[in-house]
Amino acid sequence: MILRSLTKHVKDQNWFAVLIDFTIVVIGVFIGIQVANWNELRAQEQRDIVLLERLFGDFEQIAEWGERRYPLHVETAEHTRRLIEAIRNDVEPPLDNSTRDWLEASVEVYASFESSPTYDELVATGTLSRIRHAGLRQALNAYAREREADMVLLNQQLQMRDTGPIESAVRFRANSERYGDVLIADSFDWPRLKSTEPHLQKVLRTQVLRNRWHRQELASAREILSIINDSLGSDQ
């Protein structure tokens, strides 16, 4: 209808009316573009909220797992240290529950912290920039680097366990009455066990290093949750 009116005014050389019609068209197009942009912005904000909620769910589980497991990792390193101390003092311990804890710690390998499927998806698709909060991106990247470093140590620890001399000095069995479906030390050869001290030193060093990474991963996970919680609170 505006086009028909504009055509008529041009034919009539009514330039003032032409100007009015043209202005109406321009304003209409401008408003249409602005409305479309506003709708897209609102849709993007909703997608961002869903993304943050997914990340929050991932790291809530990661932090929960870390808070539950980290003390066990620290305790395992302490058991290994106590075994090394007994060997250095050359005092053969009785095969009681404490000694069993020491022996089992020497071959115990804990899994690394979980990854975030949502973060992995963003990295794989090259869309990490969807996260507009620079601090959150940095915290996510820091967690990924810390977990990668821990995975390297995990592989080293598995190799040490599978190729180490401990099992030639300690006899293990499964299905412990104390803990369930895990290894339990049944007996040990003290002279052979004493010869494993250099290996145990490597085991302890790796356990301590992994615990350091686990502590940093847990701190990063908590920081990520705090940033996301603040962001969602400000967006609601």
Rank of each mutant, 00 (worst) to 15 (best):
A139W: 00
A139F: 04
N141F: 02
A142E: 08
Y143D: 11
Y143M: 10
R145I: 09
E146A: 01
E146G: 00
R147H: 14
R147K: 15
E148N: 07
A149W: 06
A149V: 07
A149M: 11
L153N: 14
L154A: 11
N155E: 15
N155T: 12
N155D: 15
Q156H: 09
Q157H: 14
L158E: 07
L158R: 12
L158T: 00
L158A: 00
Q159R: 11
Q159L: 08
M160E: 07
R161V: 06
R161W: 02
T163K: 07
T163S: 13
G164V: 08
G164C: 09
E167S: 08
E167F: 08
A169C: 05
A169T: 12
A169G: 08
V170L: 02
V170M: 06
V170S: 03
R171Y: 04
F172R: 11
R173L: 02
N175W: 06
S176G: 08
S176N: 03
R178A: 10
R178Q: 08
Y179A: 12
Y179M: 10
D181E: 13
V182A: 04
A185V: 03
A185S: 06
D186R: 14
D186G: 09
S187L: 01
F188N: 01
F188T: 00
D189L: 02
D189M: 00
D189F: 03
P191F: 05
R192E: 14
R192C: 04
R192T: 13
L193M: 11
L193K: 03
L193R: 02
K194E: 10
K194Q: 15
T196Y: 05
T196E: 00
E197A: 12
E197P: 02
P198Q: 08
P198K: 10
P198G: 06
H199P: 00
Q201W: 07
Q201R: 15
K202G: 01
K202L: 06
K202R: 10
K202N: 09
V203M: 08
V203I: 13
L204C: 06
L204Y: 12
L204G: 01
R205I: 10
R205W: 12
R205F: 13
R205E: 15
R205P: 04
R205D: 15
Q207E: 12
Q207T: 03
Q207M: 07
V208Y: 03
V208K: 02
V208E: 15
V208C: 00
L209M: 14
L209T: 13
R210G: 05
R212P: 00
R212K: 11
W213E: 12
W213P: 00
W213V: 01
W213L: 09
H214G: 13
H214A: 13
R215V: 06
R215G: 15
Q216H: 14
E217C: 06
L218N: 12
A219I: 05
A219W: 03
A219T: 09
S220M: 10
A221T: 09
R222T: 09
R222N: 15
